[in-house]
Design a protein around this nucleic acid. Structure first.
Length: 747
RNA sequence: GGGUGAUUAGCUCAGUGGUAGAGCGCUGCCUUCACACGGCAGAGGUCAUAGGUUCGAUCCCUAUAUCACCCACCA
């Protein structure tokens, strides 16, 4: 057979061309698989959503591993003849995107978002987001990801916005979304609230001060934040603490740093009598724990720190100062008044905001929350153990689907973490004081326009899917936590709420055909942020699970095992690597050595190693094809060795299939690598050379058959891992037509 | 404070109840008509430590040490 093949696979030229050929075939879209007769109409489906990448920047190695693992899943399912849907999209990533654009705006124009105003600023963010989105889409294609682009969605487009408004209204009516004045995590840097999960604790050294509010105050307390003590309204001691029992219930008036304080002595079980003096100054407005304690004891709340982390009270030098400066001033005062009795270095965790790095300041604020413990009626339920119309809480739903095994997590150990998270779950604060995102679908009677709202709603907010009719209404300026809209992702992308009625999907819709999805594959970091929230929203909205299996992968770290970050500049740029070594090599390097749930490392060396494997696949194929004589009509006579080799192949096929079915992609990849290179190329091909030199005959026919059989099967098995080079070789195989595509070949 | 994971070749990591594997690196030979992004040969590991279960343990159990991560937030 004459061949027009160089000794290298030209990945730079061919990979984009092959991707175009796949797109042209339409096979990324399951409808076409049926239409073109590649899969049966009655075939099983396989559906999965791509974790939508943020529209904040370029594709990084974290995206690359997601795309690799998921594309392997998808290509495998498709080759098994399933109606396979892998649905792409992008995430508006509210805070992340807004703060990025604010930075650019400041750098380029020296302006803040307030200089532009809401509308102009949002236009600017949208321009940035759409540009960023275009880039990341192109980059996603370079990875070879076989996504159905015809179904692409965006967390902030019209369909998703309708889904968000619809579910907000529904939850509000069910009493699950409530507005309340509570102590929340305030990020002074980002000027917004954040959820408990967005708080990152960092270890830091701090000083623990022990002192009395005043000379005649009977109990000394300890704190690392003396400045907050201007907001104290109580001192708490343990009920069993005999030292302080006689003071409990009494109220003392003291003058503390020029402030009049009224301190009540209370007994609360949360207080550890062994810590410090065994007495705790209670600051209801500026500590979550203290806030909860104040609710138990009906204590008043006094806010002394504002949204800019500045003191709202105190004498000159304190009032208006940053908390950190005020702290020193308070300590000075304590020293001067001889009230300070102890000063000790301690290790302490400080709360920081995930996105901005700002130090979180607990503040009382009026915000929107999802109450996860409020009972409500679930009208329709496909959840095992929960009947139609049963009264449940969101927490119970979230727990149930894992407890009854309806959803499985791989690796299993993460189920424990999930349950622990649920146990600690408090109301989810969903309102954000930023502009980019889904604006909260709540309207209040207008205060500035001068027009009165309709009388029946005089004092009540209007909550609706659409804005209220008539003038005199103002929409809540806040937006929703970005995870609110991502939480709807498995069903908002499939046509909900349009294609859903009477508690079930309408016939013939995507929602009916593809929901629940089969697998949700993502990084373990996102388990609480996203996976748990999807379970919450889907079980609530549909009475259904969002997916059957959760597959979690680890972080990709640099060669030294460090987390990849921009500030370290240690990122391996997947695009540069694709350009240099090909997407197949990048994919193999990411999958091999990456066991489920455990972190892996990446390096250019490793990628280069798998590029060499790409070349090996290419050249071994070239050898087999060059030595194939399609005119040979002789019936092959297999030797014992031929039979052994074919048996070996069958064993590899069985093992690879088993590994993939068990989500052990790293093992399947390694086995294929080893078999192809060190069995097939090094041994089987080498030993075949003498036999191929024969002019003709049954033995030559046999060896040709063995080689092409193994090659054909290897290409199929390697295809999910290395789609490009395998596809390129495929249509050169004897018997294959020019436009035959490996992508839809049967496994 | 609670939990989880890791400890295997020089480096980075897979893996398995029964002669130890990959990538990169190293040594020697080979530019042989698929591939030097290659081939062949080789060096290098008491699979953290100590007990236990077993005919047999790197793998299972217990303890210890070190590291990493997650959660709680003792103020």
């Amino acid at each position: 057979m004459k061949l027009n093949m160089d000794s290298r696979f030209d990945h730079q030229k061919r990979e984009p061309e092959i991707y175009k050929a796949w797109e042209k075939s339409g096979f990324f879209n399951p409808d076409n698989l049926v239409k073109k007769g590649v899969v049966k109409k009655t075939a099983k489906k396989f559906s999965m959503v791509l974790p939508p990448p943020n529209v904040t920047g370029i594709l990084h190695i974290g995206h690359a591993i997601v795309l690799t693992i998921e594309d392997i899943m998808v290509r495998f399912a498709r080759m098994q003849g399933k109606k396979t849907l892998w649905l792409p999209g992008a995430d508006h990533a509210a805070i992340a995107t807004q703060s990025k654009v604010e930075k650019i705006l400041y750098k380029e124009d020296g302006k803040s978002r307030h200089d532009l105003g809401r509308d102009k600023f949002l236009k600017r963010v949208e321009a940035f987001a759409s540009e960023s989105h275009r880039t990341i889409t192109e980059q996603t294609k370079r990875m070879g990801a076989s996504l159905d682009w015809s179904r692409e969605a965006f967390t902030l487009d019209d369909e998703r916005n309708l889904a968000v408004r619809t579910i907000f209204k529904k939850m509000y009516d069910d009493g699950l979304i409530v507005r309340g004045h509570r102590v929340v995590n305030w990020d002074p840097k980002g000027q917004t609230t954040i959820s408990d999960d967005e708080v990152i604790y960092k270890e830091a050294r701090a000083k623990l001060y022990t002192f009395r509010y005043a000379k005649d105050f009977p109990i000394a307390i300890s704190t690392t934040r003396p400045e907050t003590k201007l907001g104290d309204t109580a001192v708490a001691v343990n009920p069993k603490d005999a030292r302080y029992a006689k003071y409990v219930g009494k109220t003392y008036k003291v003058k503390f740093v020029g402030e009049d304080l009224e301190i009540k002595i209370i007994a609360d079980r949360e207080v550890d009598s062994k810590f410090g003096t065994g007495a705790l100054g209670v600051t209801p407005a500026h500590s979550t724990i203290d806030y909860e304690m104040s609710l138990r004891h009906g204590l008043p709340m006094k806010q002394v720190i504002d949204e800019y982390a500045r003191m709202m009270v105190g004498p000159d030098g304190i009032k208006g100062e940053k908390t950190i400066n005020a702290r020193d001033k308070v300590v000075e005062w304590l020293k001067k008044e001889k009230l300070l009795t102890g000063e000790e270095d301690v290790e302490q965790n400080i709360s920081t905001a995930e996105r901005t790095g700002g130090i979180v300041e607990p503040l009382p604020k009026l915000q929107w929350f999802i109450d996860v413990e409020k009972p409500f009626k679930l009208p329709k339920s496909n959840i095992k153990g929960i009947k139609n119309g049963q009264t449940v809480t969101l927490k119970e739903l979230m727990r149930m689907v894992f407890k009854n095994g309806q959803i499985k997590i791989i690796p299993k150990r993460f189920e424990k973490e999930y349950f622990r998270w649920i146990d600690n779950l408090r109301p989810w604060c969903i309102s954000r004081q930023i502009w980019y995102g889904h604006q909260i679908p709540v309207w209040y009677p207008s205060t500035s326009s001068g027009q009165a709202p309709s009388t029946d709603a005089q004092n009540k907010p209007y909550v609706g899917v659409e804005a209220p009719k008539g003038a005199g209404w103002e929409q809540d300026p806040d937006t929703l936590d970005t995870w609110f809209s991502s939480a709807l992702w498995t069903f908002s992308t499939l046509g909900w709420p349009f294609d859903y009625a009477q508690g079930k999907p309408k016939k013939g819709t995507d929602l009916e055909a593809y929901h629940p999805t089969d697998v949700l594959e993502t990084a373990y970091e996102i388990l609480f942020f996203w996976v748990a929230r999807m379970v919450l929203m889907t079980t609530y909205a549909l009475g259904e699970i969002p997916f059957h299996t959760v597959y979690l992968h680890g972080l990709v770290r640099d060669e030294q095992g460090r987390k990849i970050s921009k500030s370290l500049g240690n990122g391996v740029d997947p695009l540069e690597m694709i350009d240099k070594y090909g997407a197949d090599a990048v994919r193999m390097s990411l999958i091999i050595g990456a066991a489920p749930g455990s972190d892996s490392k990446t390096s250019e060396n490793k990628i280069r190693g798998y590029r060499n494997f790409t070349t090996k696949v290419w050249n071994a194929s070239r050898f087999v094809l060059m030595n194939y004589n399609d005119k040979l009509k002789t019936k092959p006579t297999y030797t014992a060795e031929d039979k052994r080799n074919l048996k070996k192949l069958a064993e590899v096929e069985a093992k690879v299939t088993k590994h993939i079915e068990e989500y052990k992609y790293h093992q399947a990849g390694e086995l294929l690598y080893h078999f192809f290179w060190h069995e097939f190329a090094d041994k089987i091909i080498e030993k075949s050379k003498d036999r191929l030199r024969e002019e003709s005959g049954a033995d030559k026919a046999a060896v040709q058959e063995v080689l092409t059989t193994i090659l054909r099967s290897s290409l199929k098995m390697l295809h999910p891992f290395m789609p490009y080079v395998t596809e390129e070789v495929w249509n050169k195989l004897p018997g294959n037509k020019k436009d035959d595509l490996l992508i839809v070949e049967r496994w």
